[in-house]
């Protein structure tokens, strides 16, 4: 199986697709282990670079997988790795969503829905906090995030790109201001 890089990509990423509860962040450590230590597709330095690039790119963080596939086997590798990561979990999600909708309005469905919704929100908040912690923005990042959220609640039709430009500009300005000081 190791002879064919495409089969190896499938063998590595399909299992990750099925266990990635909570999304991409939960499997990054596992992907690093497989990619660097087991398959020897790249050095850990390269892996960190790919991780940084996947965070700079738009879309789900799981696009890291696309980059690994691309590194291993070019365009075909990128496509195969992406499909291997997204298709299995999508089939499960599709099946569950179908059953889920068929029983809409039943008492157990309402209970499940109302019981699960606050957990989803708790996870969203936890995700927001973990992203703010990973970044290098510190308190400024928390302030910008809070400010952007407040602005959007006040003006729901405000375009997010405007906020993004503003956020980027604030960070650049803060760095320019602090670069005059001995410590950043």
């Amino acid at each position: 199986m190791k002879d064919d890089p495409l089969l190896a990509l499938i063998a590595v990423f399909v299992p990750f697709s099925l266990i990635s509860i909570g999304g991409g962040p939960s499997i990054i450590a596992g992907i690093q282990h497989q990619t660097v230590d087991v398959q020897h597709w790249m050095s850990s330095r390269e892996f960190i670079n790919f991780f940084a690039i996947s965070r700079a790119a738009p879309g789900p963080g799981s696009m890291l997988t696309t980059l690994i596939g691309w590194h291993v086997a070019g365009w075909t590798g990128a496509l195969v790795a992406t499909l291997a990561l997204f298709v299995p979990s999508s089939i499960i999600c599709y099946a569950v969503a179908t059953v889920w909708r068929q029983h809409r309005g039943k008492r157990w469905h309402t209970a499940l829905e109302q019981g699960l919704a606050p957990i989803g929100i708790g996870l969203i908040l936890a995700g927001a906090v973990s992203i703010l912690r990973i970044g290098h923005g510190g308190p400024l990042a928390w302030a910008v995030a809070g400010g952007a959220g407040a602005l959007l609640l006040w003006q729901p039709r405000l375009h997010p790109l405007l906020l993004f430009v503003l956020g980027g500009a604030i960070f650049v300005a803060a760095r320019l201001l602090s670069s005059g000081l001995p410590m950043l």
């Binding site: 940084a52 965070r55 700079a56 919704a117 606050p118 989803g120 929100i121 969203i124 908040l125 995700g127 927001a128 992203i131 703010l132 970044g135 290098h136 923005g137 400024l140 990042a141 928390w142 910008v144 995030a145 809070g146 400010g147 952007a148 959220g149 407040a150 602005l151 959007l152 609640l153 729901p156 997010p160 906020l163 993004f164 503003l166 956020g167 980027g168 500009a169 604030i170 960070f171 650049v172 760095r175």
Partner: peptide
């Protein structure tokens, strides 16, 4: 990276809106 950090921080604002609506519901 500095720009991306700023963009990422304001993107969190979008998540906070969903969280605020969900929290009001809860």
């Amino acid at each position: 990276e500095t720009v991306m950090d700023g963009v990422a921080a304001s993107a969190i604002g979008l998540l906070l809106v969903v969280a605020a609506k969900g929290a009001r519901r809860a």
